[in-house]
Design a protein around this nucleic acid. Structure first.
Lengths: 197, 197
DNA sequence: CTCATTATAGTTAGTATTAACTAACTTTTA
DNA sequence: TAAAAGTTAGTTAATACTAACTATAATGAG
C-alpha cells in the first residue's frame, strides 16, 4: 500500500483539486507548485515528469474505484440493493471529498497521449463492467427484468449515474448529491425490477 | 443565416475536427492554420482572437442543436415517438459528420473562462429541457408512466443518450451508433411507457 | 554517543520550446 | 483603386524542464 510517498499523495491531491476547479489546462507545474507550496523543481524530486504525474493520478483513481466497487459487491445483498449501493457509495465519496472523484468519469483527463487515454478509459470500463455483472446476476436470479438486455440496462444505469454527477459538477455543487442520488436510484429500481417477482 | 462567412465556417469546421480528434489542447492556432491550409495570421482576419473562435464554435453548435430539436418536436407524433426521434436525429447527424457533434455534450469545451463555460452548459440545458418538456407532455397525455417524476426520467434518458455517445467516441467509432441507438431507444421506451395505457 | 558522510528534498536562476498574437508588407478581388 | 485576405518575420509570455547549489535528516565508523 506504500505505493506513493506522503509528498506524492499531497501533490496528487492538489493536482486533482486543480483539475476539478478549472480543467486539465489548469494543471501546470507552476500552479501545482504554488498549491503544494514549494518550488517548481521540487515537484521533479517526486515525479519524473508531468506525464508521470498524470499517470499517478489515474493509478490513484483506479485504486479508489476498486475499493468502492469492492464495498458495493461485498455487501452480499441482492442485485437491486447492490445497484443502490453503487450510487450511494460513489456519491458519498464524491460528496465528502469533492475534489477528486468529480472527474473520474469525465473525459477531462483524456489526452493526446494514447497511454493516458487507455488508462483513464479502463477506469471507466472497470465500473461499467462491474455494474454489468451485477445486473446479469440479478437477471439470472429473477430480480431484474429480462425483457431488456443486460447491455441496455447497463447503459441506462451508468448513464443516469454519470449524468447526475456531471449536472452536480456543472451546477457548482448546487444540490445535495447524496439526496438526489438516492431519488435517482429509487427511480431506476422501479424501472428495472422484475415485476413478476 | 449569414451568421458566418464561408471562411469562418471552414475554420470552425476544422477546429471541431481538431478537438474531436485530440481534445481542446490540440486546438492551437498553428494546428488550425495547418488544417485550413493558410498561415497563422490569416486566422486573425476572420476571428478577433482564440476566444472568439471558441465562442463561435459554441454558437454554431447551438444553431445545429436547435435545428435538431425543432425536427424532433415538429414531427407532431406521440411523446414516445418524439423520444425515439431524439435519439435517431442526434445519432444520425453525429454519425454522418463524425467530427462536430461528438463533443457537443462532452465537457471538452469547458474552459477557465466563465463566459465560455456558461455558453456550452446552456447548449446542454437546451436539449435537456426540451426532452423534459416532451416527457412531461407524455405523462399528461397518459403515454408515459407517472409513478416516476419527470426529472428522474429526464436524467435516465439524457444519461443513456450521452453515455452511448461517449462510448462510441471512446471506442473509436467501433460500432454503428445509429443501430445501437435504436436498440437503446427501444429499451427506454419499454421502461418508461405507461403500462395501463 | 559523536561526528563525518551521504542520500534526500529543497532552493534560485536559468534554458528551450511553444503559445497567442502583431507589424508591416503583398496579393487578390470587388 | 481601395478594401479584403493573404504573406513573412517577428514579439511576448507561458510552459515543461534542467543545472547547480544548499539545507536537512538518516547512516554508519571510530
Amino acid at each position: 500500500m506504500a505505493r506513493f510517498s506522503d509528498r506524492q499523495k499531497e501533490i496528487i491531491n492538489e493536482a486533482l483539486k486543480l483539475i476539478a476547479n478549472n480543467g486539465i489546462q489548469n494543471l501546470t507545474i507552476k500552479n501545482l507548485s504554488k498549491a503544494v507550496n514549494f518550488s517548481e523543481p521540487a515537484i521533479y524530486r517526486h515525479f519524473a515528469d508531468k506525464k508521470d504525474i498524470l499517470m499517478s493520478i489515474i493509478t490513484y483513481l483506479t485504486i479508489c474505484e476498486k475499493s468502492i466497487l469492492k464495498k458495493v459487491q461485498a455487501s452480499g445483498v441482492s442485485a437491486l440493493d447492490q445497484i443502490d449501493n453503487f450510487f450511494a457509495e460513489h456519491f458519498h465519496q464524491i460528496a465528502s471529498e469533492r475534489n477528486s472523484t468529480v472527474m473520474k468519469y469525465s473525459e477531462a483527463l483524456l489526452q493526446h497521449d494514447p497511454k493516458l487515454s487507455k488508462a483513464i478509459i479502463s477506469v471507466m470500463h472497470l465500473s461499467r463492467d462491474t455494474l454489468s455483472e451485477i445486473i446479469e446476476a440479478g437477471q439470472k436470479a429473477g430480480e431484474i427484468r429480462t425483457d431488456i438486455s443486460t447491455k441496455q440496462l447497463t447503459i441506462v444505469i451508468m448513464g443516469a449515474f454519470r449524468f447526475l454527477m456531471a449536472s452536480w459538477q456543472q451546477s457548482n455543487f448546487a444540490f445535495d448529491l447524496e439526496v438526489e442520488g438516492k431519488k435517482q436510484a429509487e427511480a431506476i429500481r422501479k424501472m428495472i425490477h422484475n415485476q413478476g417477482h
